[in-house]
Design a protein around this nucleic acid. Structure first.
Lengths: 401, 401
DNA sequence: GTAATAAGTCAAGACAATTGACTTAATAAG
DNA sequence: CTTATTAAGTCAATTGTCTTGACTTATTAC
């Protein structure tokens, strides 16, 4: 036992873990169901009325919930519904992309209160760090101008950027983010902002956003297929974002497809990068987004071939996701122009047969999610909010924080 | 609020949830690390010495742990290590396959104490139910002959059979298990045995077995690629088996591959079923397993082509699994003859490039797991043991049971 | 031989959920 | 209009579980 081999074990828990969990469960219930009375909460969470009363009182004191007007419904004393107070907490979300960086301030219910973006100069972290820190600072300042005491209610800074993380570069992408991926970003941002900083890849951030305010709201098993400059999948499994052993789960852009005797990564076939190449467009062109939106909505025949090819690959990807994950639904989202996403969804149907074809489905197999340049930053911000307020296993354990 | 819409919420927890979790954490720590002293456990779980002492005392009273001889190690009072008592709990595992059914009795540490198998007559549940119930009864009887009071320590019956569950049959497999998949098996077995019954597909059971006593022992992120009559993946994510929304996660046999302009399910290319067809063999032949083992170990050229094709598909499947799940390792296991699994592993290498190629890996990307006809039944039994003793989120909540 | 170190126990205390009786406020029934 | 019934919510005491800090025991290092 003196053999220095570290002992591995899960952490235990105690009263505080219990209490923290029950607080989170209340907040989660209000987020999913809207306003609920204490009696409703007691029934739904299987806690006693008294326990719920105590917790709600505490949450109200902390400014996280507030009572609404009493509701009469049949016999008995009218109930007093409680709702989440949007101003109860805020988080900053930061998206680092190839040419731009975006930052948002988001409140407890997922509303975006402040948005700001900046051009990211070439040169990676050496020049970009200052831009990013300035952008975050400006968003915090604007937020403070809108809401009193916002800084006290700031639970963290969430960062989203393309993955994968921790891999030696494949080096075949001229717009690769390798310099950023290797940079000690978390430490730098923690030091530069004083906030609790978390990192996700952009597909994961999109999924986090969909879970907080989008098509995955209240779902425990959903996969978001994210079409951006690259392509990735954000995995909501058992009600939580799944990260894998190294934070790279869902990086399906690097999945190899075999066709015509050669192998191609999926993201060379179905991603904005592939479209840019197909169109011989300059990814750094600021008007490109609008231009592609026009092309896609105008029914330009030049883009149709690409849409057909990409849709075929996406159709197969969805089939594979359904087969592997058995989710409640698949959500197609992206930082691609909305018209393009809509064209893709139209071109994907009908879906391939899979185990997802079951009687008694209530959700469609494929749904469209957000296709908004700001959704990744929103999802980045949703990360710290979820960490702070959503019920999850790790939050109960003693070593959580 | 009167609108009958059910309120959805996670369940709260209380003292008993805390206590139950901490007990499970102790057992888990002893399972992963071997014998540990109370002080070791306190450090590893971040609980106090006193708490650990109380829990260990209770576990010892319950016959789940026992003390070993004191160990001197440097200054200070010698420590008393505690270990799991194998006879502390038992579970019955039942595998229902196409032609046979197997049942085992397994103890707390995953040792198989009793095994029994029976031929499953054609006709599905109408004739098979009695065979199964008799088999389970005989295993329980034999176990009771070996261990006193075994019935009191029986935590449940785990069942494993090919999936997917709840799907209207594709009907293209002459050996399909559709009649079993539609049969109210859980209710029948619960009524017929009086035990707590759980169900997994066979790949999930294989993964559960690997996690308890095999290559995934102590790992939190591992995927078992299971080659049997069909092919499936058992997913260990965040330390737990992932089931998906409908219990069908990992059923990759139905994944469609596109090649030469047509689509084929993976299990028509890399599974024993495909090999049987390739060899024009009768799946019901009881000597087939040994025969194929001979073919594979003898280097029969007739089987080489199939191995090459299957290995290529498995190589790609592993690549895809690594890309999607970012696991610590992938484990190839199966109910296929061991020589065949070894040939396949040899033919799979070298692996395709993926994000799993990272510096500082300690585990191999691909490992071989159990290739034993009994491993699925063992995994089936490991299900109830895990449910009863492993730490997991659901076990903390008030509605767990 | 004595100090230092580590394992483990004892008894009191703190924390958070539970229990059961009670209060309040509404509707339904006579 | 009065009374019974129902449901929301509170009060005060209790319970279960972990924590705290002092203490005991057993061993090695100096």
């Amino acid at each position: 036992m003196n053999d220095s081999r570290p002992i591995r074990a899960k952490s235990g828990t105690n009263h505080e873990g219990t209490s923290a969990h029950n607080r989170r469960v209340m907040i989660d219930a209000l987020r999913i169901n809207g306003a609920l009375s204490r009696a409703d909460l007691a029934r739904a969470t299987r806690l006693t009325k008294q326990t719920v009363s105590n917790i709600i009182e505490e949450l109200e004191r902390d400014g996280l919930v507030s009572s609404q007007e009493a509701v009469r419904k049949g016999r008995g004393q009218p109930s007093t519904p409680y709702r989440l107070v949007p101003e109860g907490a805020f988080a900053i979300g930061l998206q680092i992309d190839r040419h731009v960086t975006r930052a948002v301030a988001v409140d407890l219910v997922g509303r975006v209160l402040v948005r700001a973006e900046a051009v990211l100069p070439p040169g990676g972290p050496s020049t970009g760090t200052k831009v990013i820190l300035d952008l975050v600072a400006s968003v915090r300042l604007k937020l403070a101008g809108i809401v009193r005491q916002s800084e006290k209610r700031l639970v963290g800074l969430g960062v989203a950027m393309p993955g994968p993380f921790g891999i030696d570069g494949s080096g075949d992408d001229p717009w690769m983010m390798e310099a950023w991926q290797k940079f000690p970003l978390l430490d730098t941002l923690t030091a530069g902002t004083g906030l609790d900083v978390g990192l996700q890849n952009d597909a994961a951030a999109a999924a986090t956003a969909e879970r907080m305010v989008g098509a995955a709201h209240g779902l425990d098993h959903a996969v978001c297929l994210f079409v951006g400059y690259g392509i990735g999948a954000g995995l909501i499994l058992n009600g939580e974002l799944y990260r894998g052993a190294n934070g790279n789960a869902g990086e399906i852009g690097m999945a190899l497809l075999f066709a015509d005797g050669k192998s191609t990564p999926l993201e060379h076939r179905a991603s904005l990068a592939s479209l840019y190449q197909y169109l011989s467009a300059d990814p750094a062109d600021p008007d490109l987004h609008a231009h592609i939106n026009d092309l896609a909505s105008g029914g330009d025949p030049g883009i149709d071939t690409w849409i057909e090819t990409a849709a075929a690959d996406l159709r197969w990807s969805i089939h594979l996701i359904e087969t592997i994950f058995d989710p409640q639904t698949v959500i197609l989202c992206g930082s691609a122009p909305e018209a393009l996403v809509n064209r893709l969804i139209a071109a994907i149907g009908p879906l391939l047969p899979s185990i997802a074809e079951r009687r008694g489905r209530t959700l469609p197999r494929l749904q469209s999610g957000m296709a908004d340049p700001w959704s990744v930053a929103l999802g980045a911000a949703a990360g710290p909010i979820g960490r702070a307020f959503d019920p999850h296993f790790a939050a109960i354990l003693k070593d959580s924080r």
